[in-house]
């Protein structure tokens, strides 16, 4: 019954967009313009509905306890939440200086003809399938990193699949995004300001720092966009994080789990247990809320700057 109602309302919504366009054009366009809002709010409602059994059963404790014992129906999302925060924080810490360097190098040092090539290279990375990053992380980055740390320390301390591998892989993936936003802002520094900076005798490096301060809103905006990416990234992280569901990670060199990789790795066997699907939907609800808040902040910062 519910399915028919759903199907009916979707069909009516889509038909009325195209019908209204023929009759009352502006209202048809407004209805089309609300697609994004409909999808986002639909997602929130569906996640809340699907997560409700778990929230009712475990309450708020689901988010503040560690543990993953499906046969006893004991779940806790704390390791995943902490894993998400750690990996994205480390990834951002690595990515921001790199992204700023890319933006500065493109705008200050490369000749104009190379600029477009470099820029479309950055766009290309944005279109690269994330699963290929995961493949590379699993077979190249992870072993190389573990070897490097183990020879540097002199004893066996690091495994290929760890929170650190995931963080570095994330940093590689999100750097181009942040760089694209920062570069866009950097190119918008008015010519007058640039001339003023050089006229007081600044060297190029000093000029770069002044300009970076001038576009700091773009840097923050890019940082938040990249943070949103890092927190939501699923497949690449799930391939290199190791999948440690129940224990709180004690260091970066241990295996861990993040909210979205927990969903990806545990979903195939979720149907066998009574509460696992609702618990995973609770994780999805958290991912969605995090995505909404962080991207909202990013977009607010960037909007404010543009106007």
């Amino acid at each position: 019954m519910f399915g028919l109602v759903l199907l009916f309302s979707v069909v009516v919504y889509l038909l009325s967009i195209f019908l209204l366009m023929a009759i009352k054009f502006k209202w048809g366009m407004r209805l089309a313009g609300s697609i994004s809002l409909v999808v986002i709010s639909g997602m929130m409602i569906v996640f809340l509905y699907e997560a409700w059994p778990a929230l009712e059963q475990y309450g708020f404790g689901l988010l503040t306890t560690a543990g993953w014992d499906p046969p006893r129906e004991e779940y806790g999302l704390l390791p995943a939440i902490i894993g998400t925060l750690i990996t994205s924080a480390v990834a951002i810490a690595i990515a921001v200086p790199l992204a700023i360097s890319i933006a500065v190098t493109i705008n200050e040092m490369l000749p104009r003809s190379l600029r477009t090539i470099f820029a479309s290279l950055v766009d290309l990375i944005a279109a690269m399938p994330t699963v290929i990053f995961g493949l590379w992380g699993l077979f190249v980055l992870g072993p190389a990193l573990a070897d490097f740390i183990n020879t540097a320390v002199g004893e066996y301390v690091a495994a290929p699949l760890s929170l650190l591998t995931a963080s570095i892989l994330l940093a590689i993936m999100i750097t181009p995004y942040a760089a694209a936003v920062i570069r866009e802002g950097y190119a918008l520094v008015p010519k007058v300001v640039e001339e003023a900076i050089y006229s007081v005798g600044a060297t190029k490096l000093e000029a770069v720092f002044i300009k970076l301060k001038y576009v700091k809103n773009y840097i923050f905006g890019g940082l938040f966009l990249a943070l949103g990416r890092a927190m939501g990234e699923t497949v690449a992280v799930a391939m290199v994080i190791g999948g440690n569901y129940s224990r709180l990670p004690q260091s970066l060199l241990e295996s861990g789990i993040t909210l979205s990789s927990l969903i990806a790795l545990q979903f195939p066997n979720a149907a066998a247990y009574a509460y696992m699907i609702p618990v995973l939907f609770t994780a999805a609800l958290m991912v969605a809320v995090l995505g909404l808040v962080i991207n909202g902040v990013a977009i607010y910062i960037l909007y404010k700057t543009q106007i």
Binding site: S36, V39, E233, S260, A284, A288, L292, N295, G296, I299
Partner: peptide, 13 residues
């Protein structure tokens, strides 16, 4: 705003 959020939304959701 909705479109800008949706484009960066975690795809797993």
């Amino acid at each position: 705003g909705g479109v800008n959020i949706l484009v960066e939304f975690p795809t797993i959701t």
